[in-house]
Simulated assay, not measured.
Amino acid sequence: MTTMMLNWPEWQGGMNPDYQMGNRVLRAIVPEILDALQVNVPVSPDANKKSGIDGGVQLANQQQFARDALVKNKPQRVITLGGDCAVSEVPFDYLNGRYPDDFGVIWLDAHPDISTISDTHHLHEMVVADLLHASNSEFAQQVQNPLRPAQVFFAGLTVAALRPMDQLVRDMGLATATPQQLRQGHPIQDWLVAHAIRHVALHFDLDVLDPDDFRSILPAKPHFDRAQFGAAIGSMTLDQVIALLTNVSHQADLVGLSIAEHMPWDALNLHRGLNQLPIFNGGRQS
């Protein structure tokens, strides 16, 4: 068995239950892999705080389920469909252990997700810090194959908008490229060569995309004033991202791909509207 697909509608990492609908729609979108092992991670409807992390009880249980499935089946490649960004923590840890000599992570995101337990109580904002053993969180202690700073590249990052909670990017000297730098040169390809990286896991947070180009992300909420978003908004187009993924796949073996934070507003709003109709509630008013 070479490929495992983890279907993981996790929402507690960002405390947003709508990510569950995002996963359901995403599963219908991604190409089918006939010989892949499909693993559905059971996700609880509850969110109980643990060790300073919202939903920490459920997040720990869900991570352990995914970790056990990976250890048991030992796939060569892992595709993970989120859910929030924290779904990359376990598969990337596993893949770093499987390819210990030439493995790297490309984090394609407008935000670095590298906060510490002192900065946030949301797991999806500290997943990279966990993987680097730099978050001081209980979840970092479960990472068995921590990354070195040289193994991480932040692509599409809005560096000028880094917040105090993002400062580990600079403090640890991590490689970065803004959307403009990605358009003008080949920083990822140069990084792969410089560090002799032959196996790559890529985290694709859909928030790296421009909400005018791709409308199924948080800041693309209909009638929302984006000036009130409170964080960096992506500016890449889907065509640019697909070209980036294609180029990486030609230069290295793409052994991990996570797609996270899909927010299909039209599907969500239609679902909520229809749910108000008695015909969907056994004739009862909802």
Rank of each mutant, 00 (worst) to 15 (best):
Gln144Phe: 00
Phe214Asn: 04
Gln58Ala: 14
Thr80Trp: 00
Val25Pro: 05
Pro31Arg: 02
Arg183Ala: 13
Pro112Asp: 04
Ser286Ile: 05
Lys221Trp: 03
Gly185His: 09
Leu209Gln: 08
His122Pro: 06
Ala155Lys: 09
Gln141Thr: 14
His199Ala: 01
Ala232Glu: 11
Arg24Ser: 11
Ala86Lys: 07
Val43Cys: 13
Lys221Pro: 09
Asp84Glu: 13
Ser44Cys: 09
Phe153Arg: 14
Arg24Tyr: 02
Gly55Ile: 11
Ala28Gln: 13
Arg24Leu: 06
Pro9Thr: 08
Val43Ile: 15
Ala160Thr: 13
Ser249Thr: 12
Gln228Met: 09
Asn73Pro: 00
Leu147Ala: 11
Asp171Val: 02
Phe229Gly: 03
Gln63Ser: 06
Gln76Asn: 12
Leu206Glu: 05
Leu70Trp: 02
Ala201Trp: 00
Val57Tyr: 15
Leu108Gln: 08
Ile188Thr: 09
Pro222Asp: 04
Gly273Ile: 05
Ile242Ala: 07
Gly156His: 04
Trp107Lys: 11
Lys50Gln: 14
Arg226Gln: 15
Met1Pro: 06
Glu89Ile: 15
Glu261Asp: 10
Gly55Pro: 06
Val78Ala: 08
Arg284Thr: 07
Gly273Trp: 12
Thr158Phe: 00
Leu270Ile: 14
Asp212Met: 10
Arg148Phe: 03
Lys50Arg: 15
Asn247Lys: 13
Thr2Asn: 14
Gly83His: 05
Asp266Ser: 13
Phe229Val: 02
Ser88Trp: 00
Glu10Asn: 14
Thr80Ala: 13
Pro264Phe: 01
Ser135Phe: 02
Val152Tyr: 08
Asp93Leu: 03
Ile259Gly: 05
Glu125Asn: 11
Ser51Phe: 08
Gly173Thr: 06
Ala160Cys: 00
Gln142Asp: 15
Asn281Lys: 02
Leu209Ile: 04
Asp205Ala: 03
Ala252Gln: 06
Asp35Met: 01
Leu132Asp: 00
Gln63Asn: 12
Pro100Asn: 06
Ser44Tyr: 04
His121Ala: 08
Leu123His: 14
Arg27Ser: 15
Arg98Ile: 08
Thr3Lys: 06
Asn73Tyr: 04
His223Asp: 15
Cys85Glu: 06
Ile259Val: 12
Gly230Tyr: 05
Met263His: 13
Thr176Phe: 00
Gly234Asn: 11
Arg77Glu: 08
Arg226Ile: 10
Asn16Trp: 01
Leu274Met: 14
His271Leu: 15
Val43Trp: 03
Gly56Glu: 12
Asp35Ala: 09
Leu95Tyr: 10
Ile217Asn: 07
Leu254Ser: 08
Val78Gly: 12
Pro42Met: 00
Asn269Tyr: 09
Ala231Thr: 06
Pro211Gly: 14
Asp46Phe: 07
Val248Met: 10
Asn61Gln: 11
Trp107Ile: 06
Leu270Phe: 02
Val127Phe: 02
Asp210His: 01
Ala60Asn: 07
Gly97Ile: 04
Asn96Gly: 10
Val152Phe: 03
Asp210Gly: 04
Asp46Tyr: 09
Gln76Val: 06
Asn145Lys: 12
Thr158Ser: 15
Asp166Glu: 00
Asp253Leu: 04
Met236Asp: 12
Phe139Trp: 09
Phe280Thr: 10
Arg183Ser: 08
Leu168Pro: 04
Val30Leu: 00
Asp119Cys: 01
Gly173Asn: 08
Gly104His: 07
Gly52Lys: 10
Val25Ile: 12
Asn48Ala: 08
Trp8Cys: 03
Arg215Asp: 07
